[in-house]
Amino acid sequence: MKYYGLVDGTEASLKNFLKSLPGVDQVGAEARAAMLGTRSIKTSSKKKAIDLAISMVDLTTLEGADTAGKVTALASKAVRPDPTDPTVPSVGAICVYNDMVSIARKHLDLVGGSHVPVAAVCTAFPSGRATMPVKIQDTIDAMDAGAGEIDMVIDRGAFLSGHLMDVFEEIVKIREVCGEKVHLKVILETGELVTYDNVRKASFLAMLAGADFIKTSTGKVAPAATPPVVLVMLEAVRDFYELTNKRIGVKPAGGIRNTKDAIKQLVLVNETAGPEWLTPSLFRIGASALLNDLLMQRMKIRDGYYASPTYVTID
Protein backbone atom coordinates (compact mmCIF):
# COMPACT_ATOMS: atom_id res chain seq x y z
CA MET A 1 0.00 0.00 0.00
CA LYS A 2 1.25 3.47 -0.82
CA TYR A 3 2.94 5.15 2.14
CA TYR A 4 2.08 2.03 4.14
CA GLY A 5 -1.50 3.24 4.26
CA LEU A 6 -0.54 5.57 7.11
CA VAL A 7 -0.81 8.81 5.14
CA ASP A 8 -2.61 9.50 1.90
CA GLY A 9 -0.07 11.78 0.25
CA THR A 10 -1.75 15.02 1.25
CA GLU A 11 -0.08 17.60 3.39
CA ALA A 12 -2.88 17.44 5.94
CA SER A 13 -2.55 13.73 6.50
CA LEU A 14 1.23 13.94 6.76
CA LYS A 15 1.06 16.77 9.26
CA ASN A 16 -1.59 15.01 11.30
CA PHE A 17 0.42 11.83 11.42
CA LEU A 18 3.59 13.57 12.52
CA LYS A 19 1.68 15.62 15.06
CA SER A 20 0.28 12.45 16.62
CA LEU A 21 3.75 11.20 17.51
CA PRO A 22 4.54 11.41 21.22
CA GLY A 23 7.10 14.02 22.26
CA VAL A 24 10.62 13.23 23.35
CA ASP A 25 11.81 14.47 26.69
CA GLN A 26 15.38 15.55 26.15
CA VAL A 27 16.64 14.82 29.63
CA GLY A 28 14.95 11.43 29.77
CA ALA A 29 16.24 10.38 26.37
CA GLU A 30 19.77 11.47 27.20
CA ALA A 31 19.64 9.71 30.54
CA ARG A 32 18.54 6.47 28.90
CA ALA A 33 21.30 6.69 26.30
CA ALA A 34 23.86 7.45 29.00
CA MET A 35 22.68 4.51 31.07
CA LEU A 36 23.05 2.17 28.12
CA GLY A 37 26.49 3.67 27.67
CA THR A 38 27.49 2.12 30.99
CA ARG A 39 27.00 -1.41 29.67
CA SER A 40 30.26 -3.23 30.01
CA ILE A 41 31.01 -5.44 27.03
CA LYS A 42 33.87 -7.76 27.78
CA THR A 43 35.75 -10.82 26.48
CA SER A 44 33.70 -13.08 24.21
CA SER A 45 30.89 -10.60 23.69
CA LYS A 46 33.40 -7.88 22.88
CA LYS A 47 35.07 -10.04 20.26
CA LYS A 48 31.76 -10.74 18.64
CA ALA A 49 30.73 -7.10 18.82
CA ILE A 50 33.93 -5.94 17.13
CA ASP A 51 33.45 -8.26 14.15
CA LEU A 52 29.82 -7.24 13.92
CA ALA A 53 30.80 -3.58 14.01
CA ILE A 54 33.41 -4.10 11.27
CA SER A 55 30.80 -5.70 9.06
CA MET A 56 28.54 -2.69 9.64
CA VAL A 57 31.05 0.03 8.82
CA ASP A 58 30.28 2.16 5.80
CA LEU A 59 33.89 3.04 5.18
CA THR A 60 33.72 6.62 4.13
CA THR A 61 35.71 9.28 2.40
CA LEU A 62 33.91 12.49 1.53
CA GLU A 63 36.58 15.08 0.98
CA GLY A 64 37.19 17.67 -1.67
CA ALA A 65 40.70 16.21 -1.80
CA ASP A 66 39.53 12.70 -2.63
CA THR A 67 41.42 11.11 -5.52
CA ALA A 68 41.27 7.86 -7.38
CA GLY A 69 44.27 6.69 -5.37
CA LYS A 70 42.58 7.42 -2.09
CA VAL A 71 39.39 5.70 -3.14
CA THR A 72 41.06 2.56 -4.45
CA ALA A 73 43.05 2.25 -1.22
CA LEU A 74 39.80 2.53 0.68
CA ALA A 75 38.21 -0.12 -1.51
CA SER A 76 41.03 -2.57 -0.87
CA LYS A 77 40.74 -2.01 2.83
CA ALA A 78 36.98 -2.44 2.73
CA VAL A 79 37.30 -5.94 1.36
CA ARG A 80 40.14 -7.11 3.63
CA PRO A 81 40.40 -4.72 6.54
CA ASP A 82 43.31 -6.65 8.04
CA PRO A 83 45.45 -8.18 5.29
CA THR A 84 47.22 -10.35 7.89
CA ASP A 85 44.03 -11.90 9.18
CA PRO A 86 41.51 -13.36 6.76
CA THR A 87 38.98 -13.95 9.54
CA VAL A 88 38.25 -10.23 9.65
CA PRO A 89 35.00 -9.61 7.76
CA SER A 90 34.60 -7.09 4.97
CA VAL A 91 32.92 -3.82 5.82
CA GLY A 92 29.30 -3.08 5.03
CA ALA A 93 29.93 -0.69 2.13
CA ILE A 94 32.17 2.08 1.05
CA CYS A 95 30.71 5.54 0.89
CA VAL A 96 31.96 8.16 -1.60
CA TYR A 97 30.91 11.14 -3.70
CA ASN A 98 29.23 10.19 -6.95
CA ASP A 99 32.19 10.98 -9.23
CA MET A 100 34.19 8.36 -7.31
CA VAL A 101 31.57 5.63 -7.58
CA SER A 102 32.78 3.99 -10.75
CA ILE A 103 36.40 3.99 -9.54
CA ALA A 104 35.35 2.42 -6.31
CA ARG A 105 33.10 -0.14 -7.95
CA LYS A 106 35.74 -1.24 -10.42
CA HIS A 107 38.43 -1.55 -7.82
CA LEU A 108 36.22 -3.48 -5.42
CA ASP A 109 35.38 -5.94 -8.14
CA LEU A 110 39.05 -6.17 -9.02
CA VAL A 111 40.15 -7.10 -5.49
CA GLY A 112 37.42 -9.66 -4.88
CA GLY A 113 35.00 -7.29 -3.21
CA SER A 114 32.03 -7.64 -5.49
CA HIS A 115 29.96 -8.34 -2.36
CA VAL A 116 30.79 -4.90 -0.97
CA PRO A 117 28.36 -2.27 -2.22
CA VAL A 118 29.24 1.30 -3.05
CA ALA A 119 27.14 3.97 -1.42
CA ALA A 120 27.02 7.37 -3.05
CA VAL A 121 26.09 10.58 -1.29
CA CYS A 122 23.59 12.39 -3.46
CA THR A 123 21.04 15.19 -3.84
CA ALA A 124 23.57 18.00 -3.50
CA PHE A 125 25.27 16.50 -0.49
CA PRO A 126 25.91 17.78 2.12
CA SER A 127 23.73 20.91 2.10
CA GLY A 128 20.95 19.69 -0.19
CA ARG A 129 20.73 23.19 -1.61
CA ALA A 130 20.02 22.56 -5.30
CA THR A 131 17.00 22.31 -7.55
CA MET A 132 15.14 19.06 -7.83
CA PRO A 133 16.28 18.26 -11.41
CA VAL A 134 19.88 18.55 -10.23
CA LYS A 135 19.22 16.25 -7.29
CA ILE A 136 17.58 13.71 -9.53
CA GLN A 137 20.40 13.82 -12.03
CA ASP A 138 22.92 13.50 -9.21
CA THR A 139 21.19 10.29 -8.16
CA ILE A 140 20.91 8.90 -11.68
CA ASP A 141 24.62 9.58 -12.27
CA ALA A 142 25.57 7.67 -9.15
CA MET A 143 23.37 4.72 -10.04
CA ASP A 144 24.71 4.66 -13.57
CA ALA A 145 28.22 4.55 -12.16
CA GLY A 146 27.35 1.47 -10.14
CA ALA A 147 26.13 2.73 -6.79
CA GLY A 148 24.10 0.10 -4.97
CA GLU A 149 23.15 2.48 -2.21
CA ILE A 150 22.10 6.11 -2.34
CA ASP A 151 22.65 8.33 0.70
CA MET A 152 20.45 11.37 0.07
CA VAL A 153 20.12 14.45 2.24
CA ILE A 154 16.78 16.02 3.17
CA ASP A 155 16.01 19.68 2.76
CA ARG A 156 16.49 20.82 6.34
CA GLY A 157 15.47 24.37 5.52
CA ALA A 158 12.12 23.14 4.29
CA PHE A 159 11.72 20.91 7.32
CA LEU A 160 12.51 23.66 9.80
CA SER A 161 10.20 26.13 8.07
CA GLY A 162 7.34 23.68 8.25
CA HIS A 163 7.27 22.73 4.57
CA LEU A 164 7.11 19.08 5.43
CA MET A 165 5.42 18.16 2.17
CA ASP A 166 8.38 19.49 0.17
CA VAL A 167 10.72 17.30 2.15
CA PHE A 168 8.39 14.34 1.76
CA GLU A 169 7.98 14.73 -1.99
CA GLU A 170 11.72 14.98 -2.56
CA ILE A 171 12.27 11.68 -0.81
CA VAL A 172 9.39 10.09 -2.73
CA LYS A 173 10.93 11.25 -6.02
CA ILE A 174 14.41 9.94 -5.21
CA ARG A 175 12.82 6.68 -4.07
CA GLU A 176 11.21 6.41 -7.50
CA VAL A 177 14.55 7.07 -9.17
CA CYS A 178 16.21 4.39 -7.04
CA GLY A 179 13.55 1.86 -7.81
CA GLU A 180 13.49 -1.38 -5.84
CA LYS A 181 17.07 -2.50 -6.47
CA VAL A 182 18.98 0.46 -5.08
CA HIS A 183 19.02 0.96 -1.37
CA LEU A 184 17.93 4.43 -0.24
CA LYS A 185 19.37 5.96 2.90
CA VAL A 186 17.88 9.27 3.97
CA ILE A 187 20.20 11.61 5.85
CA LEU A 188 18.30 13.74 8.37
CA GLU A 189 21.28 15.85 9.45
CA THR A 190 20.10 15.75 13.05
CA GLY A 191 22.62 18.37 14.11
CA GLU A 192 20.62 20.91 12.14
CA LEU A 193 17.23 19.62 13.26
CA VAL A 194 18.41 20.34 16.83
CA THR A 195 15.56 18.85 18.87
CA TYR A 196 14.77 15.19 19.46
CA ASP A 197 11.14 15.94 18.63
CA ASN A 198 12.34 16.97 15.17
CA VAL A 199 14.51 13.87 14.88
CA ARG A 200 11.53 11.65 15.61
CA LYS A 201 9.31 13.54 13.16
CA ALA A 202 11.91 13.54 10.40
CA SER A 203 12.55 9.84 10.95
CA PHE A 204 8.90 9.00 10.45
CA LEU A 205 8.60 11.38 7.52
CA ALA A 206 11.54 9.68 5.78
CA MET A 207 10.23 6.20 6.49
CA LEU A 208 6.76 7.04 5.22
CA ALA A 209 8.28 8.48 2.05
CA GLY A 210 10.09 5.24 1.32
CA ALA A 211 13.50 5.25 2.99
CA ASP A 212 15.22 1.90 3.46
CA PHE A 213 17.51 3.46 6.01
CA ILE A 214 17.42 6.60 8.07
CA LYS A 215 20.83 8.12 8.62
CA THR A 216 21.80 10.66 11.24
CA SER A 217 24.26 12.95 9.56
CA THR A 218 26.45 14.02 6.70
CA GLY A 219 29.51 14.08 8.90
CA LYS A 220 29.92 17.74 8.04
CA VAL A 221 27.85 19.11 10.91
CA ALA A 222 28.38 18.63 14.62
CA PRO A 223 26.83 17.19 16.70
CA ALA A 224 26.30 14.13 14.58
CA ALA A 225 25.51 10.57 15.66
CA THR A 226 25.22 11.12 19.39
CA PRO A 227 23.84 8.17 21.36
CA PRO A 228 20.54 9.90 22.25
CA VAL A 229 19.92 10.84 18.60
CA VAL A 230 20.50 7.25 17.58
CA LEU A 231 18.29 6.11 20.45
CA VAL A 232 15.42 8.24 19.20
CA MET A 233 15.88 6.96 15.65
CA LEU A 234 16.00 3.36 16.85
CA GLU A 235 12.77 3.93 18.76
CA ALA A 236 11.30 5.29 15.54
CA VAL A 237 12.20 2.24 13.46
CA ARG A 238 10.97 -0.05 16.23
CA ASP A 239 7.64 1.78 16.38
CA PHE A 240 7.42 1.89 12.58
CA TYR A 241 7.84 -1.87 12.51
CA GLU A 242 4.96 -2.19 14.98
CA LEU A 243 2.79 -0.16 12.61
CA THR A 244 3.83 -1.63 9.27
CA ASN A 245 5.67 -4.89 9.88
CA LYS A 246 8.53 -3.40 7.88
CA ARG A 247 12.01 -3.03 9.31
CA ILE A 248 13.83 0.16 8.35
CA GLY A 249 17.57 0.40 8.92
CA VAL A 250 19.48 3.00 10.90
CA LYS A 251 22.85 4.49 10.09
CA PRO A 252 24.64 6.69 12.57
CA ALA A 253 27.41 8.61 10.86
CA GLY A 254 29.90 11.10 12.21
CA GLY A 255 31.66 11.17 15.53
CA ILE A 256 31.96 7.42 16.05
CA ARG A 257 35.72 7.12 16.19
CA ASN A 258 36.59 4.26 18.50
CA THR A 259 35.56 0.77 19.48
CA LYS A 260 33.95 1.91 22.69
CA ASP A 261 31.66 4.31 20.81
CA ALA A 262 30.82 1.63 18.24
CA ILE A 263 29.95 -0.93 20.89
CA LYS A 264 27.76 1.62 22.64
CA GLN A 265 25.89 1.93 19.36
CA LEU A 266 25.41 -1.83 19.21
CA VAL A 267 24.12 -1.85 22.77
CA LEU A 268 21.65 0.88 21.81
CA VAL A 269 20.46 -1.27 18.93
CA ASN A 270 20.24 -4.41 21.02
CA GLU A 271 18.20 -2.86 23.80
CA THR A 272 16.09 -0.44 21.79
CA ALA A 273 15.15 -1.75 18.37
CA GLY A 274 16.17 -5.25 19.35
CA PRO A 275 18.60 -7.94 18.16
CA GLU A 276 16.76 -8.24 14.82
CA TRP A 277 18.49 -5.01 13.86
CA LEU A 278 21.97 -6.34 14.62
CA THR A 279 22.80 -7.01 10.98
CA PRO A 280 24.51 -4.91 8.29
CA SER A 281 21.28 -4.95 6.35
CA LEU A 282 19.60 -2.96 9.13
CA PHE A 283 22.40 -1.14 10.90
CA ARG A 284 25.45 0.62 9.50
CA ILE A 285 27.99 2.90 11.00
CA GLY A 286 29.32 5.65 8.77
CA ALA A 287 32.97 6.14 9.71
CA SER A 288 36.57 6.22 8.57
CA ALA A 289 38.97 6.26 11.52
CA LEU A 290 36.78 3.83 13.44
CA LEU A 291 37.84 0.83 11.40
CA ASN A 292 41.46 0.97 12.50
CA ASP A 293 40.52 1.23 16.15
CA LEU A 294 38.26 -1.79 15.78
CA LEU A 295 41.15 -3.65 14.18
CA MET A 296 43.54 -2.72 16.96
CA GLN A 297 41.07 -3.81 19.62
CA ARG A 298 40.58 -7.03 17.73
CA MET A 299 44.36 -7.62 17.75
CA LYS A 300 44.48 -6.99 21.46
CA ILE A 301 41.86 -9.67 22.06
CA ARG A 302 43.56 -12.07 19.68
CA ASP A 303 47.10 -11.53 20.94
CA GLY A 304 46.53 -10.66 24.56
CA TYR A 305 48.61 -7.49 24.47
CA TYR A 306 47.93 -3.95 23.27
CA ALA A 307 48.37 -3.21 19.55
CA SER A 308 50.14 -0.31 17.85
CA PRO A 309 48.88 1.76 14.90
CA THR A 310 52.08 0.65 13.18
CA TYR A 311 50.43 -2.70 12.54
CA VAL A 312 47.22 -1.50 10.93
CA THR A 313 47.08 -0.08 7.45
CA ILE A 314 46.44 3.59 6.84
CA ASP A 315 44.50 4.69 3.84
Binding site: I41, V267, P275, L278
Partner: peptide, 10 residues
Amino acid sequence: MTTFDYAPAL
Protein backbone atom coordinates in the same frame (compact mmCIF):
# COMPACT_ATOMS: atom_id res chain seq x y z
CA MET B 1 19.30 -13.50 13.95
CA THR B 2 22.41 -12.33 15.74
CA THR B 3 22.17 -12.44 19.48
CA PHE B 4 24.22 -10.07 21.54
CA ASP B 5 24.64 -11.65 24.93
CA TYR B 6 26.76 -9.68 27.31
CA ALA B 7 29.48 -11.76 28.91
CA PRO B 8 29.69 -11.40 32.70
CA ALA B 9 31.44 -8.14 33.56
CA LEU B 10 32.14 -8.56 37.22
